[in-house]
């Protein structure tokens, strides 16, 4: 090991600026910098901004109108929760059921999901799992960055990948990537991660209102429904639009409760009623089946305790602070 490097002299920058790896007189740097880039007149700036914020074309047909719909995300092979959801949501008057993708991962017996979706007449869209499995990708493309997260993501994806037939993967590939629905007078865009990326994490604490307003504006919609993070939240924007992360029904929401969550949307006079609904299900039977399938103990612990034990590094500061681990 080398000893401490000789520190540069603290006075070495007096009147000088760093340009790349050299020192030059401060004014030389600043003069050169001023010559780069552009300083547009105000009118041109407004034009640039308007072009940047322009509405994107989207030919997705609008389904509905509905008075009341249930929307859920991330089944993660949890056929017990899916079965409970079908009964719960229809019992509470949902006219239509929408699934925002990620049918597989985490839980047991992937092919048990499709028959339930079909029995419940659920309209689904693709998550990154469906996209990756149908395209034969080696990873789930969840979008994790930390090796600790990726380790468990790989175990999860590997199990689902090995337990899906080619026919099942082709079925996943045929699911559309996005949908639009009308609830009352509101037109809502349904996506997995975000309208821009299937694997974008929209966590409550790291998604600014300004960003959501622009996202709705660019997509010409009155609201956005998404999932992917596993954590549900709802934000009513200053414009009156609603953005809802509907959460997932595949695993609990890292809150020490064993239930999972979905969203119920209801047409209201001049707006939208948004309810995030806790859904109890037979989590003990799920844990037993995961045990039989020799899925990781860490996953089973999450099912039984309601606390995440894996894929925690992706969480922003606030969501991580609310975690047990």
């Amino acid at each position: 090991m080398k000893g401490p490097a000789e520190p540069p002299k603290a006075t070495s920058h007096k009147g000088l600026a760093t340009w790349g790896d050299r020192l030059v007189p401060l004014e030389d740097f600043r003069d050169a910098a001023r010559q780069f880039g552009q300083e547009l007149p105000d009118a041109e700036r407004r034009t640039e901004v308007a072009a940047y914020l322009a509405v994107a074309e989207d030919a997705t047909p609008v389904e509905g109108p509905y008075e009341r719909v249930a929307v859920f995300g991330g089944v993660y092979n949890n056929h017990f929760a899916l079965e409970a959801l079908l009964e719960h949501a229809t019992g509470r008057g949902a006219e239509a059921l929408y699934c925002l993708g990620d049918l597989g991962g985490f839980g047991p017996s992937p092919e048990s999901v499709r028959p339930l979706l079909e029995a419940g007449n659920v309209r689904a869209l693709q998550g990154n799992y469906e996209q990756s499995l149908s395209a034969g990708r080696e990873t789930c493309n969840c979008g994790y960055a930390d090796p600790r997260d990726n380790h468990f993501a790989a175990l999860s994806y590997g199990y689902t990948e090995q337990n899906c037939s080619p026919e099942y993967k082709a079925y996943m590939g045929a699911i559309p990537p996005r949908r639009r629905i009308q609830v009352g007078e509101r037109e809502l865009l349904l996506v997995h991660g975000s309208p821009r990326r299937i694997n974008e994490f929209l966590f409550a604490s790291t998604t600014s209102v300004a960003f959501l307003e622009v996202l709705c504006e660019e997509n010409a919609c009155d609201g956005i429904l998404c999932t992917h993070t596993g954590l549900h939240w709802h934000r009513r924007l200053p414009s009156g639009r609603d953005v809802v992360n509907v959460g997932v029904i595949g695993r609990p929401a890292n809150d020490g409760r064993t239930n999972v969550w979905y969203a119920m949307l209801t047409a209201r006079e001049g707006g939208l009623g948004v309810e995030l609904v806790p859904l109890p299900y037979d989590h003990e039977s799920l844990a037993e089946e995961m045990q039989r399938e020799t899925l990781p103990e860490e996953f089973i612990e999450t099912v039984l305790t309601g606390w995440w034990t894996t894929c925690l590094e992706i969480l922003p500061a606030q969501e991580r602070a609310a975690s047990r681990f």
Binding site: S12, H13, L16, R22, L23
Partner: peptide
């Protein structure tokens, strides 16, 4: 004036 960082 152009000077390398080491020999400011």
């Amino acid at each position: 004036l152009v000077v390398s960082r080491a020999t400011a």
